[in-house]
Structure formats: structure tokens, C-alpha cells
Design a protein around this nucleic acid. Structure first.
Lengths: 211, 211
DNA sequence: GACTTAAGTTATCACTTGATAACTTAGCGC
DNA sequence: GCGCTAAGTTATCAAGTGATAACTTAAGTC
């Protein structure tokens, strides 16, 4: 017994949205290269050729799905700099929110096309707004550091089941992550405006080779 | 003009080693799903069926290649805890060392088989020895944190060209990473034995949800 | 020096993939 | 109600995948 309300009425915007939603789910579950267009089309309830007619190619669908899955606006519009790390952590851990974008990126860099698109979308929709929001000094480098932390977090908690706990993480590690992110946010011109701005002070600071 | 010294003499161990080396390179370059056995066999100078006879299947070859690419022994045998973060950073940034294992893992989690094998090998060959080396408190959680940092680092510096500099990283970020890793290592029972043990102290510590 | 085993190859299978061409049908304007 | 456009389908292609069977040839042994 399917939904008897709308059996097979034609509705282009709704169909397009269904394809996009199915694509987001599939790409977030198994990544770009493993998700087939037939499979995605079947989930959306259409044929694969229609999917291609809407989005041109699998790569076009991927770009559209990934772009639509980036929730940066809601994260950065607020001025709550003090709770950014905690907010981001909760965003990633809350299963009901189900933030798909980082999983899509992490699972799709293995493919050349997927990596290229993911890089471009991350650059435009995450790195640039995040750097602008963080501000000087080293806005771009600090935004990069936040992305680095987030990627590692999502990769290790969602994809590699190394930790036995639910969602692959313990509370101490969750708090450690939140504070690591917050530490990057708090690096302002005063260099240590509030507490320790750097993760730790090693005795071996000068030995990192020039990249 | 090929090497006239050994044109086509049969040598099983050398052939096996050549296949393994080609596989490591290919998996580190394009990941598990994108690297074909024909391609790997061609680089090694053999046919694909011979490759399968040596390693049983593509998954078997992948496991062998990844296991052989894990250089944890040399990293953990020394007792230089003070310079671990710096040492790890240099290991990842030095192009001449060319540590392939993390790239292989990062590029291969998009495939179900690759992810399973990568998870198991990482658990056995990285997480467990690293946790034993770190010691209490929270040995396993802290080892997990180090792996998280390393994965994000390798993913963002090698695979996603977000930063314009060589090797995808600037010196400040390299130092920040080294100190973040060192901060995890330095978390001993005294909780802050040397400088700040946590990346930063947020005012919002209790708000992380239980995972 | 024939025999045997291991090293290595060619030919092929069964399957999946993204993509295209040609066809059908529903909906809306007049 | 007729017709045009857009929505959607089936059938198919061409290429690439991992894997298997059967065959060939080199190397060591008695």
C-alpha cells in the first residue's frame, strides 16, 4: 500500500527535490564513486535517465547535492563566538540533525571527480565564509585548521568505528574536540585573549620544517 | 632500452615485492576503488592474474599493501615523548619520507571493502600500539584523538588543495598541529604536567551532549 | 636430460557502470 | 478538444570491473 494521495502525478519541482534528497542520502552513506545513478533514481522513484536530464551528469548531481547540504549559513550568522566549538560539536554529534555534507566530502575524495567538486564547494561555501567570520589574524589558516579538525572528527567518528561508544566517541573526546575548535576561534590579535590560545606549548617549536 | 641486467628472469620474491610496491603507490594515489588490478599489475610489470594468484583478491592485496605501509614501529619505539608532535608533523610534511599509509586510508574509506580493511588494520597496527605507548589516563581515547588529528591533517593537506602553499600547509598551521598532537600526548595523570594540556578552556564545558 | 613444480601468460566470463537515442504520455493554453 | 511542450519511460551502447580456466614456459632435482 503506497501513498494513495499522489500516485503518479507529474510534478517537476517535487521530483527534482526527491532526486536531490536521495542523492544526498546516498552520497553521504556510500560516497560518490559507490553510489550509482540507478540506485539513487530508484530511491527517488524515477528512472536514471530522468535524473541525468535534470542534472546533466552524475558529477552535476553530486555538485548540486553537496552544495545543498552545506549548512554554513545557520552556523555563522550568529555572533556567538564563545560557544562555536561546542556548537559545532553538538552539530556533528546530534543524530537528529544529520549533517550530511562532511560525510559526503570524506567519502568522496577517493574519486577524482568527487574530490575536485568537493574541493571547490568546500573552498567557496566553507573556507571563505569561515575565514571571513573568524577574521584576522591568519583568517584563512585558522579556517583551514577548523576544517582540518572537522574532517578528522567526522572521518573517525562516523566512518571508522574505532571507538566502541555510540556515534564512535566518548564524552572526554567530545569535550576535547570542542575545546580544540574553540582554541582556534579564540586566537585573536592579543594572542591569548582568554586562557590558553594554543593547544599546548612544546619545547620544540623551531624544528618544524618549512613547507 | 630497458634494464639489460635482468630482462625476464623469474624471481618470485622480487615480483611479489614489485606488486606490493606498485599497489602501495596506486592505493596512496587514487584509493582502493579507483585503483584497478590491471593498472597495478602493469606498473609492477606483470599480468593481473599473477597479482591475484599472489594475493588472492584485490582486497587481499589491499590489506597486504596497507599493512606493509604502516610505519608505527619506528615512531613509537623511541621514548621521546616531548617531541612526538613535532616528530609526527615532520613525518607527514617531509616529502622524501613519503608516508603512504594515511593517504591510503583516507582515499579508501569510500569503498565498503576498503573501509573495513582500513579500519581493522588501523585498529591493530595504530590504535592499539599508540594507546599502549601513551598510557593512562584514557589511553585509548587519547590515541583516538591523535588518529583524528592525523587523519584530518593528511586529508586536508594532501587531498584537498585548499591552501596555496606547498604540501598544502603554512608554517603556523604546521606548528599548531604539532602542538595540538603534543597536547594530547602530554595529558598525564597530573592533568597539565607541562603547560596547558587542553587546547583551550571554554566557558561552556558542560554543554556537550552525551554521545 | 626427462620430470615436476612453480611462475607467468592469454583469452574470456559475468557483471556493473554512466550515458544516449528514441519513444510515450501527461498537463496546460487557446 | 486540439496541440504543443515538458515530464518520464524503455531499450541499448560502450567501456571497464574483478575474477576464473586453461595454457605456456622457466627453473630446480634426481
Amino acid at each position: 500500500m503506497d501513498a494513495p494521495t499522489e500516485p503518479k502525478r507529474r510534478n517537476a519541482p517535487k521530483t527534482r527535490a526527491a532526486i536531490l534528497a536521495a542523492a544526498q542520502q546516498a552520497f553521504a552513506d556510500i560516497g560518490y564513486s559507490q553510489a550509482g545513478i540507478r540506485e539513487i533514481a530508484a530511491i527517488a522513484g524515477v528512472s536514471s535517465t530522468l535524473l541525468l536530464r535534470y542534472f546533466g551528469s552524475k558529477a552535476g548531481l553530486f555538485e548540486a547535492a553537496l552544495t545543498a547540504a552545506m549548512p554554513m549559513d545557520g552556523l555563522l550568522t550568529q555572533n556567538a563566538r564563545d560557544s562555536f566549538g561546542e556548537h559545532l560539536t553538538r552539530l556533528f554529534l546530534d543524530a537528529t540533525l544529520d549533517i550530511k555534507a562532511p560525510s559526503i566530502v570524506v567519502l568522496s575524495i577517493g574519486d577524482a571527480d568527487g574530490r575536485g567538486i568537493a574541493t571547490r564547494v568546500t573552498e567557496e561555501r566553507v573556507l571563505q565564509p569561515l575565514a571571513a567570520w573568524l577574521g584576522p589574524p591568519d583568517a584563512r589558516a585558522r579556517a583551514f585548521q577548523v576544517i582540518m579538525l572537522a574532517m578528522g572528527f567526522v572521518l573517525c567518528t562516523r566512518q571508522i568505528p574505532l571507538m566502541p561508544a555510540a556515534r564512535g566517541i566518548d564524552r572526554k573526546t567530545a569535550r576535547w574536540f570542542a575545546e580544540a575548535v574553540q582554541g582556534v576561534v579564540d586566537q585573536s590579535d592579543g594572542a591569548g585573549a582568554r586562557g590558553a590560545t594554543r593547544p599546548a606549548r612544546s619545547r620544540h617549536r623551531a624544528a618544524i620544517p618549512k613547507p
